[in-house]
Design a protein around this nucleic acid. Structure first.
Lengths: 240, 240
DNA sequence: CCCGATAAGTGTACTCCGTACACCTGTCGG
DNA sequence: CCGACAGGTGTACGGAGTACACTTATCGGG
């Protein structure tokens, strides 16, 4: 009798997609470090071991989550030259990854050879080949792109965690400044030049999107030059 | 009486450096994933909590370990032009990091603002400034370098774990090949072209060092071009 | 109409992790 | 000689991933 009400509360018997979606939401909202099997189960109103009926283990869960995000990336635009196709695709990937910052860490931390990732890489290679790149050059170009293919760069000094930290007093600020000035004068100089209006000393105040596109275009320009001049690795190796 | 012998066995009362060195050795030999405070303590013939007298916590241990490796990187060569100075330094860093593969993961997984890392970055910036680069261009150039400053690239498909895995039968090999051919034809094509003599299907058979230098030189060439033509970010932004 | 197979969810328990905290011990300067 | 202090110990806690044995719900066929 009372049974019926409880059953209605938690219907839809939980499947792989619901598990993955919930995991993505949890990682988005609480951070990847808060994503544990136990926490995820709790979020789904279920006992931890129930998840293992839908994913083999945590590794596979992470793989699946990456797959979900990779699925959000726009497919290659058709009818564009290779440069624009690649560029737009990467910027689309970047938009997806910026919405889900945890993906970066997951992609970096483990070898990822899931169908979703392989599919993305494959279509990526396809854009170069379709653009007339030789298989040889395409290979090296893919290595040169590296993780930039996903739309992210290694951030040396990620200041994104600053919001939560305690407000620094003027004295500490001054002391840090002094410390930097004597120990790391070059970093300081660059950081000072980069800061626009906010008063932060190191990092930020610089336009990440601009930095990314700067490096990306630099690479793409290089690729194009090599392509135009019929570069081959054999010739390059002989020239050394 | 027997006391004396035991005490002689484990002399030298353990200090920060010994802890860090042991941690580095352990990570080198057993992999970073096997490095736990308990395991490390055991290796040092000490109880786990003893370590906390020398490092605040595991994070600081990892920071210290990175510091040890960064300390192994050659200082900038003097009297070279910026390009050679940067190139040689990066290749030196690469040699160090290849000896200690775990550093890559540690550097990637966390924001690293230790003195050792800051010092490295600072001296790195210094090489560009000394080469006549504007502060502005240096800033963007550092972003473009990203983790390549450390001598590593994001490896999409790291096959280094293959040695330990079970030998695949001819049938499985063939099945995998078939799978690849239909699902990821472009990856397959590139992989086939890259393989030299070994029979592996995906990855390896390609010269990682060559790939790295290919990308590095491409970037350095771009940097040089920008430098020569007096590039500034302001002008670049206006041009868009 | 029941029945057994299969899928989904549960409960308990194990091992391993980082580390807080109270304690002991050996050394050394006053 | 003594007391402070640095270095090492022992115990314990909470949290992680997950193995394994179990109940329960569903449903097609005799």
């Amino acid at each position: 009798m009372t049974q019926q009400v409880e059953e209605a509360t938690r219907r839809t018997p939980l499947n792989r997609d619901r598990v993955l979606s919930a995991a993505v939401v949890l990682a988005d909202e609480a951070g990847i470090e808060s994503l544990s099997m136990r926490r995820l189960a709790q979020e789904l109103g279920v006992v931890p071991m129930a998840l293992y009926k839908h994913v083999a283990n945590k590794e596979e869960l992470l793989d699946g989550m990456v797959g979900v995000i990779v699925g959000e990336i726009d497919p290659p635009v058709s009818g564009a030259d290779w440069r624009n196709a690649v560029r737009l695709r990467i910027l689309s990937a970047r938009r997806s990854l910026l919405r889900h910052p945890w993906v970066r860490q997951v992609l970096e931390s483990r070898t990822n050879r899931t169908p979703a990732v392989l599919g993305y890489v494959d279509s990526f290679i396809g854009m170069f080949l379709a653009g007339g790149f030789s298989v040889d050059l395409t290979h090296h170009v893919m290595h040169a792109l590296g993780s930039r293919m996903w739309g992210f760069t290694q951030e040396l000094f990620d200041d994104s965690a600053n919001a939560a930290s305690a407000p620094v007093t003027a004295e500490t600020q001054a002391a840090m400044f002094q410390e930097m000035a004597t120990r790391y004068p070059n970093i300081l100089e660059v950081a000072m030049a980069a800061k626009h209006d906010d008063g932060s000393v190191v990092g930020q105040g610089c336009d990440d999107q601009f930095e990314f596109e700067f490096a990306l275009d630099l690479l793409l320009d290089g690729f194009g030059r090599f392509h135009d001049q019929g570069w081959t690795s054999k010739r390059a190796k002989l020239a050394k």
